[in-house]
């Protein structure tokens, strides 16, 4: 295997690892958020619109962390390091 190919393989594995481990945390976070929001809607259905707005906002903030990992993976694949 040539050195260039090795770099390519390393980029691909790096991208896969970045997105795999980068999404673990946000996945748990979004799950917890939705759990909390569902429970509160169940207890107090009138507050549903307010809870929904805040839940979407918090999910977006949470998801941003996964998006960082995604951007790193995309840069590794399409721009490359060398």
């Amino acid at each position: 295997m040539e050195p260039g190919e090795l770099v390519k393989v390393a980029q691909m594995i790096g991208a896969a690892l970045a997105i795999a481990f980068g999404t673990l945390g946000p996945a748990v976070g979004i799950g917890l958020l939705a759990y909390g929001a569902m429970q509160s809607i169940g207890r107090n259905p009138e507050a549903a619109p307010l809870i929904q707005t805040n839940m979407i906002l918090a999910i977006a903030l949470n998801e941003a962390i996964a998006i960082y990992a995604l951007v790193v993976a995309l840069v590794l694949i399409f721009v490359g390091g060398g």
Binding site: L61, E63, A64, Y68, L70, V71, L74
Partner: peptide
């Protein structure tokens, strides 16, 4: 940084 990367990452990943 977070505002720009969130939008870009989501939509570019969607296009791909």
């Amino acid at each position: 940084l977070s505002l720009s990367l969130r939008l870009f990452g989501n939509i570019f990943a969607g296009a791909v």
